[in-house]
Simulated scan of single mutants.
Amino acid sequence: MEIEIKLLLNDPKQISELAQCRWPGALSVITRSDLGNCYFDTPDLALRRLDMGLRIRRSGEQREQTLKTRGRVVGGLHARPEYNVPIGSDHPDLSQFPETLWTPGQCQGIQQQLFAQFQTDFMRESARLRWQGSEVELALDKGQIHAGALSDPINELELELVQGDPAVLLDLTEQLMTAQPLRLGLDSKAARGYRLAGLQPEAEIVTQWADEPGALLHAWQRNEARLMAGELAAAEPLGRVLQAQSEQAPWMRALLSEFDLRPRQALTQLQADRRYGLAQLTLLRQLLSSDSE
């Protein structure tokens, strides 16, 4: 089971290397890798309909195929079963994954139709951190998602639990957000790639939501992403989310006074404040706390 928190950088120059961040302990196993990832599916997106993601990752001469299956994404916390198998080809071999993942005949039927859908190419700096009895893998990713002539930037910092208590990821995220502006990332690279390639429609703007932390956080993140992508119709519902949040975060109010007139500029100013990501993290903590009760 892969459990990670995805954090988004406001500026690709914000963090140029992991050593720039304030970590609560010494980093070990620091590596740099130029990674190329090719994502596969069938013409009718059979894997996507099963909520699976399949890729082959290239690092130098090494190849590894990965299958991620149905999991859960809450705010910026991602938890999904993951299967990794070394492979000597640039085309996936589904028979190398556990048979229990497929119904009879399903594996062979999908295998025969697989083809490359899109690519992600990025530089990854990774390291390990031991803290509070747990071990966390850190990954700083910078690069591009490619789908034909289209591209989309990757500027992410991922914290993946190797062993220990998942709560450590939240505590570590809080320390990072306190030091510099970061925000929770909702979409995986694969989800973004499917949309960029036109294989999946853009996520809908959220106009109505329940009065509880999970729904509020989802509306916040989804409408934020749509507004940043240029969809001005997301400004009004995002403004409502932020107005509601400003009751617990009064510092937002001054910038929200400009939101109706200049929503994208005002959003950029809000994101530049370290308290913006911390407010998202507070909602995520509330959501996870209510789930555990």
Results as ranks from 00 to 15, higher is better:
A139R: 07
R22V: 14
P86S: 10
K142V: 09
D187G: 07
A234N: 02
L101M: 00
S95A: 15
A210E: 15
L267P: 12
G76R: 00
I205K: 06
A26N: 14
Q119A: 02
G148E: 08
G36Q: 14
M123Y: 13
A79E: 13
G198M: 03
Q200M: 15
L138R: 10
P92K: 00
L255R: 11
Q96W: 07
E125K: 07
A215R: 04
L283C: 00
R58F: 10
D152G: 05
M1C: 03
Q163P: 05
Y83R: 04
G198F: 02
L172H: 08
G109R: 15
Q132M: 10
D152F: 09
A116T: 02
A219C: 06
Q111H: 08
L161W: 10
L138G: 08
A167C: 06
L242H: 13
A167P: 00
Q271W: 01
Q113V: 05
L288R: 13
F40C: 02
E224G: 05
P263Y: 10
A190S: 14
F122I: 07
E174T: 10
Y83T: 01
G105L: 06
R32D: 15
Q280D: 01
D260F: 10
G88Q: 07
A79Y: 03
L9I: 01
Q132H: 11
P86Y: 02
L169A: 09
E202G: 14
P12A: 13
S28C: 12
Q271M: 13
L227P: 00
Q243T: 15
R275T: 12
L157S: 05
P43A: 11
M123R: 14
D273E: 14
R274F: 07
R264K: 15
A197Q: 06
R183S: 15
D211K: 09
Q271G: 03
S126W: 05
L169I: 05
L270E: 05
R183A: 14
A179G: 09
W23N: 08
M1K: 02
R262M: 13
R275A: 13
G164S: 08
R63Q: 12
L35S: 11
V85K: 10
I110E: 04
L94G: 11
F97D: 05
R192H: 00
L170R: 01
M252S: 07
N37P: 06
E231M: 09
H91E: 07
E2V: 00
L278G: 04
S33D: 15
P104Y: 08
R72W: 09
Q65H: 05
Y83C: 04
D187N: 12
V162Y: 04
L227D: 00
P153C: 13
A179R: 06
T100F: 14
